[in-house]
Design a protein around this nucleic acid. Structure first.
Lengths: 220, 220
DNA sequence: ACGAGCGTCGGGAAAATTTCACGACGTTGC
DNA sequence: GCAACGTCGTGAAATTTTCCCGACGCTCGT
């Protein structure tokens, strides 16, 4: 490991996975893992203190998730190179991540070579997307599935978020200081815009698009 | 690695994670990883040919999932020792896994020592549950949250499954050869039994209990 | 054998929700 | 200035959900 090695910060809440990263990356000359974090807040702290050349980050993590961590790091350093490495084989997540400022998106099902290749690409300033996500993105294009984030107005999006999180129409109305009737109207309009017929389809769509994560199920 | 080493089969669809397992386990004397699989079907095949002392298995995998793989292996060999190692910090999954015949359930957020400890426990014939899941199980007990699988009759469960998968009440009625009215009645009864007020809560509950997985979102 | 209990199936009617049509108001952009 | 649009709300119709009920068949304990 020479002084000219590219420095890397690993972020993943699963220690065994970080172990796996290390094992794969250390076989590669020119790379050096200099720090590890297990959540977004820690990642941000370590980014500031270590100023690594590259961050490899998972998306689903307790507390501050990956997307938000990307946003914060980028806000601080516009040139930050962040590669998302996640289990979510989901075009919606990829779009969100890239928009937040990530420079790459690779799924964990990818063979180690794909990860290494993506690391090199991002370090060289290129955008790296793993083939399966390319395919997902193509499919969602072809299917013409409306992306909730694009089609909905801010207010509608807010209502959708609350619908997925809170319980009743009345509670949401109170939170938003509008009449329950308005919430019902928006609810109906949202389903219309997204082209779903039932609430169950709505939740499934939200899941696919990464608006709701399985780990968000908090109130158990 | 002596001839008396305990042999292990690793099952996880993320190659980097398998890399991590190996890295952790090979530091441990007396253990030897003899095979790796990336889905349930391959796991079953390799179990038959390799007859390992222990299987370490992920839950969410393409095609045949972890639970089903446990069931098959156990059906073939009642003495099979299977340790579930997964990201799902979810009491519902743990219950399902143990009922299917797994001998242990450890989350990926656990430190490597916990995994190693669990491996030893299961090899010694003990049941191993990681502390966070113990806690989850305790909580779900205390909250008295009804487990869908327990509280619902077979027919109700079937309707729930279809509600989560299909689209309209009428379609389900047709599939089941009953009147839409019956489906609506069952739907209402299910929500009552599970103590949820809306379809959205219903889906969230199903998600928490592992009845629906993010990867099941097929029809995108 | 028999009644109690339960799962399944559905009808009827009331209650609640969803949907649709419509109007008002403020902002933005041309 | 005015057209387009987002937001908020009303009223009435359409639909769904819920609740109450009865029927049928099965199992189980006595």
């Amino acid at each position: 490991m020479s002084a000219g090695d590219a420095t890397i910060l690993l972020v993943d809440d699963h220690s065994v996975v970080r172990e796996g990263y290390r094992s794969v990356l250390q076989k590669q000359p020119g790379l050096r893992v200099v720090a590890e974090a297990s959540d977004g807040a820690e990642a941000y702290r370590l980014y500031k203190s270590e100023a690594p050349d590259l961050v490899i980050m998972d998306l689903s993590m307790p507390g501050i998730g990956g997307i938000e961590a990307v946003r914060r790091i980028r806000q601080r350093d516009k040139g930050a190179k962040i590669l998302i490495f996640t289990m979510h084989q989901n075009a919606g997540f990829a779009v969100q991540a890239i928009r937040a400022g990530a420079r790459g998106y690779v799924t964990k099902t990818s063979p180690p070579e794909t990860l290494v290749r993506a690391v090199m690409d991002v370090l060289a300033g290129r955008i790296a997307i793993s083939p399966d996500i390319d395919h997902e993105l193509a499919l969602s294009r072809l299917a013409g599935e409306s992306s909730a984030a694009d089609v909905l107005t801010p207010r509608e999006f807010e209502v959708l978020r609350l619908l997925l999180a809170e319980r009743t129409t009345d509670e949401i109305a109170e939170t938003l200081h509008v009449s329950p009737k308005t919430v019902a109207n928006l609810h109906s309009l949202i389903k219309d815009k997204l082209g779903v017929g039932s609430d169950i389809e709505l939740v499934r769509l939200a899941l696919r698009q990464g608006l709701l994560t399985q780990v968000d199920l908090g109130d158990a």
